[in-house]
């Protein structure tokens, strides 16, 4: 075993340790959801539930949790679809189309990310009121569509697509729309997958905005609904953890199912043809 092999092995080992560090809170969240309230928050903690119980999940079922779950799925999926389409178009324009206003528009997008969301909350809310978006699902979807972060990300990805590919397509008589649809999108699949995942997660976990917009209990999203189960009397950590597990699972599933778009070498053959 030569030196570089040893280093690789050690680094792989480090990777495993890091993985444990990252996984532990998630594992703990799941295991606590099966613990009774008073045991859940002990330090030192019980590493596995000594007396596992399904109580917390049963309590959850007794609420509107199923409806909240569906609401969240609907909102996040719709948001993701809308965002992927609209931001990919914008990113293409800013990455590959040469027009003078492009640079300016791009800097505005990036610049807007520097203002902390907390300062924008009230004016954004007021606009939502003006547009009659209060207490509607649209109210959760529409404000999330212009996502500067996603536009920025996709634009950077698209910048690495070689110009020759686009040039040759144009020479073959492809329209702009065609280039976007038949060349840019397929080549950007890893990027699109990343956007999809991030948007879904962000929309799903966007607690404060959901809190502000939704008024009816039946329309609540999962994070919001679970929060209303916490009463002042005593902190039912087990129940909260059960809620958190249910809230996080769909996202994990989405993440895993989108993994296949990250496969390396997707662009093989695109250049040389």
């Amino acid at each position: 075993m030569n030196k570089s092999n040893l280093i690789v092995v050690m680094l792989k080992l480090l990777l495993v340790i890091a993985a444990v560090l990252f996984l532990f809170p998630f594992y703990w969240m799941i295991s606590s959801s099966f613990k009774e309230m008073s045991i859940a928050f002990q330090i030192p903690p019980q590493f596995y539930p000594h007396h596992p119980t399904l109580n917390n999940y049963i309590k959850l079922l007794d609420t509107n949790a199923a409806k909240w779950f569906l609401n969240s799925v609907f909102v996040s999926a719709s948001t993701t679809l809308a965002v992927v389409f609209i931001t990919s178009m914008a990113a293409y324009s800013l990455a590959k189309i040469n027009f003078r206003a492009g640079k300016f528009i791009f800097s505005i997008f990036v610049g807007s990310m520097t203002i902390p969301g907390a300062a924008l909350l009230i004016p954004q809310f007021k606009i939502a009121i003006e547009l009659n978006l209060i207490n509607t699902y649209l109210g959760l979807i529409v404000p999330a569509i212009a996502a500067p972060y996603m536009i920025f990300l996709l634009r950077q990805f698209m910048k690495t697509v070689p110009q020759e590919v686009l040039e040759s397509a144009k020479m073959d008589g492809c329209s702009e729309m065609g280039i976007y649809y038949r060349i840019m999108l397929p080549l950007s699949t890893p990027g699109l997958a990343a956007i999809a995942i991030f948007t879904f997660v962000q929309s799903w976990n966007d607690y404060i905005w959901q809190l502000l917009i939704i008024k009816n209990t039946e329309m609540m999203t999962l994070p919001l609904g679970v929060a209303t189960l916490i009463d002042a009397e005593a902190v039912d950590w087990g129940l909260i953890m059960a809620g958190s597990v249910v809230t996080s699972l769909p996202v994990v599933i989405i993440f895993i199912s989108f993994q296949k778009y990250f496969v390396q070498g997707l662009t093989v053959g695109a250049v040389k043809g």
């Binding site: 969301g117 907390a118 909350l121 972060y149 991030f198 997660v201 962000q202 976990n205 966007d206 607690y207 404060i208 905005w209 994070p223 929060a227 916490i230 002042a232 902190v235 909260i240 958190s244």
Partner: peptide, 15 residues
């Protein structure tokens, strides 16, 4: 990834 306004960050405090 951008976490907009925190998850249950006030949970502990408010509770």
């Amino acid at each position: 990834r951008r976490r907009k306004h925190g998850l249950a960050y006030l949970l502990v405090m408010l509770l």
